[in-house]
Simulated scan of single mutants.
Amino acid sequence: MKHFRNNPLIDESFRGENHFLVSAIQRTIITGMTMLVCCGWTVFLCLSVQAYENLALHKPAWQSSNLLTNSGAERAVDGQYTNLSFSGGQCAVSGPGLTTDAEQTAEWRVDLGGVRSIHHIVIRHVTGNRVLDENNFYTTWFMGFSVHISNTTNKEDGVLCFRDTNYTSATIPNPVNITCPYHGRYVIYYNNRTHAPYPEGYSNDAWIRLCEVEVYGCPSLGFYGKNCSLECPQNCQDGYCDSVEGTCIDCKSGYIGPRCNQECPVGFYGKNCVKNCSLTCIVPGSCDKVTGQCLGGCQAGWTGDICEKECSLGLYGANCLMNCSLTCGHPGKCDRVTGHCNGGCQHGWTGVKCEEGKRQAGQGSVVNKLTPKIIYIKHAHLSIQFLKK
C-alpha cells in the first residue's frame, strides 16, 4: 500500500471523489495488475509473472514394460493420484506378466518436449492407499532408485540428479521431493537389482510403481528465480542458467566466470577462453575474443582469419596480397615475407625483387628503373618494351 499512497498519479482529491475506484486500484496492485487513470482514461497494465510449472504434465512417457493394460507410463503424468493402488488406473506399473520373467532393471522416462530449466521433481509412489512405512511391503521396490536428467533417452548421457543410498522402509517419504536445478529434455527414473546380495529392505526384483512424477521448472528458457521472473545473464550459452542462483551452466564463446560477465584475457579467445590468439597476427596475440580473428590483419607471409596459413606460391607480404615478380629467376617464386626473388633474376633484370631492368648501351651498361609494358615474340626473338618511371 505504501507504493499506492505515494503514487503521484493519484492525488487526494481524486481519492475522495473516487473511493471505490481507488479501492479497486489497491486490489489490482496487490494481485499483479496495475491501473493507471489519466484524463478520463482507465488503463490496465498486466504484470507478467511466471512461476514454476509442472513441465511433465500430459507429456509423452515410456517405461521398460507394462504389467496391466491400464498401467502404462502415461499414468504417471496424467495429474491424477487420488488412488495410489497399483491397479487403480492412476499409476504407471511395470513388472512380470504371464510371459515376462522378473526384471532386474526398471526404467521410466518422460519427454518434456525440449530442453527445459528444471528446479525440482516430486515423485509419488504406489502405496496401496496405505501409510508408506516399514509395514508396507511396497517400499521394498522403491529402495535404491535414481533420477537422471538428460538431453537424450540414454541416462548415461545426462547428469545424476538423485540416487537413494540412505532410505529405509521406515524413512522413505511419499511424495519424494528432489531438488534438481539442471537443464534437460528427459527425466529418467531408474532402479536395478543386478548386484546381489541386496541391502536389507530391498526387493529381489526391479519394478516401476509410480503414481505421479511432477517436474517443476520455468516454462520459458532464459529465466530463473522463485517466480521465474529474473532473466539469465546475457552471455549464458543458449540462455541456460541455474534455476535458483542464476549462474550460467556454460558461457558463450569469449566469456568466462559464474555469470559469464568476464571477457577473455588478452591473448585468449573462444569457448572457456582456452585458445591462444595467433602470434602471426599483425599485433601478436591480439584477436577477437569470440572468433579468434586477428585484429588489423596478418603479419607478412601469413593469411587466413586467424593468420594460420602461409602465403600460397606466388604471393607474399601482409595478408599475402602482393604478387611475386614474374621476372624472378623462377617466375612468380619469391620469399613469402619479403618478396625477394628465389633463384636470382631473369636475364636483363636485377634487384632483390628483380624490379630493375638492365639495358646495354655503347661501351657500357646503363641501368634504368623500368616497368615492363608489353612482352611479345616476333620472328622468334623476345622483345620487351619499357616505360620509364
Rank of each mutant, 00 (worst) to 15 (best):
T140K: 13
G267M: 12
K333Q: 14
T127R: 06
K271S: 10
G329H: 09
I30Q: 12
V43T: 11
I25G: 02
R75G: 02
P219M: 01
G304P: 09
E53P: 00
C38A: 11
L45M: 09
N177L: 06
H347V: 15
W108S: 10
C341V: 00
D205R: 08
C39W: 00
G339F: 10
C91P: 02
W349P: 05
G317A: 09
L98S: 11
E103R: 14
K388E: 14
G97F: 07
T371C: 05
S48E: 15
G97S: 02
V110K: 05
Y376S: 13
N342I: 15
C91M: 01
G89I: 15
T152G: 12
E231C: 08
D250F: 03
Q346M: 12
Q299N: 07
V93L: 07
P233L: 02
C211T: 14
K388I: 02
C345D: 06
C241T: 07
P219H: 11
E263R: 14
K155H: 14
D238A: 08
A196W: 10
I282L: 14
T303R: 14
N66W: 08
M143C: 04
A56N: 03
Q346E: 10
E17V: 04
G329D: 12
V37Y: 14
C281M: 04
Y186G: 05
I30F: 15
S65N: 13
S23V: 02
A73I: 04
A196L: 10
Q360K: 10
N83W: 00
M322G: 02
P199Q: 10
G362T: 04
G254K: 04
K358L: 11
V337R: 09
V126W: 00
G348S: 03
H119K: 13
H379K: 15
Q90W: 00
A61K: 04
P331N: 00
W62A: 10
T140A: 15
W108C: 08
G72C: 10
C287F: 00
M322Q: 12
S312V: 12
K333W: 03
V283M: 09
D101V: 05
Y190K: 04
V126M: 00
K2F: 08
F14A: 01
G329T: 11
V366Q: 13
G89H: 06
R116I: 01
D335T: 06
V93N: 04
Y52G: 05
G16V: 06
G184W: 01
S85I: 00
A106Q: 09
W141P: 00
G364T: 07
V37S: 03
G184I: 03
G239D: 05
D205V: 04
G339M: 06
P173I: 00
W207S: 08
K252Y: 04
D288Y: 05
L84Q: 14
H119C: 06
N192D: 15
H58F: 15
E200H: 10
R15I: 15
H148E: 08
S87A: 13
L326V: 13
V131I: 12
A61P: 12
G95V: 03
T42G: 02
P96N: 10
R5K: 08
C277W: 07
P175W: 02
R75H: 02
G357R: 15
E212C: 05
C281T: 08
I29H: 14
F142Q: 11
A76H: 04
S117N: 15
Q360S: 09
Q50N: 12
F223E: 05
G113H: 13
F386Y: 15
N177W: 05
